[in-house]
Amino acid sequence: MNIVVCVKVTPSTAAKIKVGASGVSIDKQGVEYEINPYDAFAIEAALQHVEANGGEVTLLSLGAEGSTKDIRNGLAMGAVKAVHLTDDNYELRDSFSVAKALADELKSLQWDAIFFGKQAVDSDNYQVPSMVSALLELPVANVCSTAEFRDGKFRAIRAVEGGTEIVELSAKCCISFTKGPKEPRFPTIPNIMKAKKKPLDQKAAPAVENRVKVTKLELPPPRPAGRIVGEGPEAAKELARLLREEAKVI
């Protein structure tokens, strides 16, 4: 089974984010990048599939030209090749623009299933997996923790309120992953070296017109300092009142 994993290179979750001069994207100065953590779970799931069932994992990414280095980390995990659609203004694309470019590229790649992370931690739109599946007319299961392959079908497991939902999909499908039971593997030292020699096909991402326009980015307001309501049972009563009337959380 050959699996394509769509990955995005996003700012490290430890990065301190500032809004850039344009007001619609972030200031990239000093920001470290890495493979989107949810995409790393998708790579891990894909590697486990090919280890169990044979086949190979290909990475497909749309992003800045400079993100090749980070895509190679995915190759070091065990993917055999990568396709990198370059666009230095990738963060100005909306989900459809990304999904359309990916879907068009996927038409020329060999695959049995397509895996994604459930969301990219930078734009947090959750839309690309569903859009790609719609464009390719494939079934999709989103936010799955695992997906077993049995008797020619995928059984994907999703955590839902108070339980789990098991979804069955035909083999040719799209699945997006959230944090699963197994953490993404660390690449070994030999695999880091091998990754340098693995094929990485780089080409300009096709232009696709946006349907959504980001007009402004704002950082959340700084959190106000905590307040000590008092001590003892009297304070508990006051705390409950404030939680209900002021914070409106109970």
Partner: peptide, 10 residues
């Protein structure tokens, strides 16, 4: 070099 940096980071 970049390769050692990758190993170092990992």
């Amino acid at each position: 070099d970049e390769e050692i940096q990758d190993m170092q980071k990992m």
